[in-house]
Simulated assay, not measured.
Amino acid sequence: MIKKETLAFVNDLIAHNDRVWFQENKSRYDDAKKNVDDFANVIIAELIKTDGSIPKEITAKQCVMRIYRDVRFSKDKSPYKNNFGIGISARGKGNDGAGYYIHIQPGASFVAGGYWLPQAEHLKAIRQEIDYNTGDLLKVIDDKEFKDFFGGFDKEQTLKTTPKGYDAEHPYIEILKLKSFTVTHSFTDEELMGPNAVAAVLKGLKLIYPLNVFLSHAIL
Rank of each mutant, 00 (worst) to 15 (best):
E145A: 13
G113E: 07
I126D: 02
L137P: 03
T134E: 01
E190K: 14
E129G: 01
Q105K: 10
K61R: 15
A90S: 11
D142G: 12
D12A: 13
I14N: 09
F181W: 05
S78F: 15
V36T: 10
L202V: 14
N35F: 06
N11G: 11
A108W: 09
K124W: 08
E57S: 07
G52F: 07
H185T: 08
T6M: 00
G99Y: 02
D37Y: 15
F9I: 10
V201A: 03
F214A: 00
S180W: 07
I219R: 00
M193F: 06
V36G: 00
T184L: 04
K155W: 11
G204S: 02
P195L: 08
S186T: 10
A32V: 10
F146E: 01
P171T: 05
E46K: 12
I67T: 14
S89Y: 13
V213G: 04
E121Q: 08
D76M: 15
I48K: 09
D30W: 13
S53E: 03
K93I: 11
E129S: 04
D136N: 06
E156C: 01
E190M: 09
V201D: 04
L207Y: 03
F153E: 02
S109A: 01
Q128S: 06
D154Y: 07
F39Q: 02
R91P: 09
Y29M: 14
A15D: 07
R66V: 14
T50R: 02
R91L: 12
V140T: 04
I44F: 11
D30H: 15
F214V: 02
P195S: 06
S216D: 07
D18S: 11
I54H: 05
N82T: 12
F22L: 13
V111K: 00
N133M: 07
S53R: 08
T50A: 07
N212S: 04
A90P: 12
S216R: 07
Y166R: 07
N17P: 14
V42P: 04
K33I: 15
N83R: 06
F9G: 00
T6V: 05
G52T: 08
D12G: 04
T162I: 13
F150Y: 12
I2S: 00
T134W: 07
T188P: 11
R69Y: 14
G107Y: 14
V64Q: 01
M193W: 12
A120C: 10
I104M: 00
S89V: 09
T162M: 06
I141Q: 02
W21K: 10
E145V: 14
D51G: 08
K61S: 14
Y132F: 06
A199P: 09
I14L: 08
E191F: 10
F146T: 09
A120Q: 13
L159R: 13
I219W: 04
G151R: 06
I44H: 01
K160W: 06
N133E: 03
F149V: 13
K147S: 06
G204Y: 10
I58M: 05
D148E: 15
E24D: 13
K49M: 12
C63D: 00
E57L: 09
P106I: 11
I88N: 03
D96C: 03
I88A: 00
F9P: 04
D142T: 08
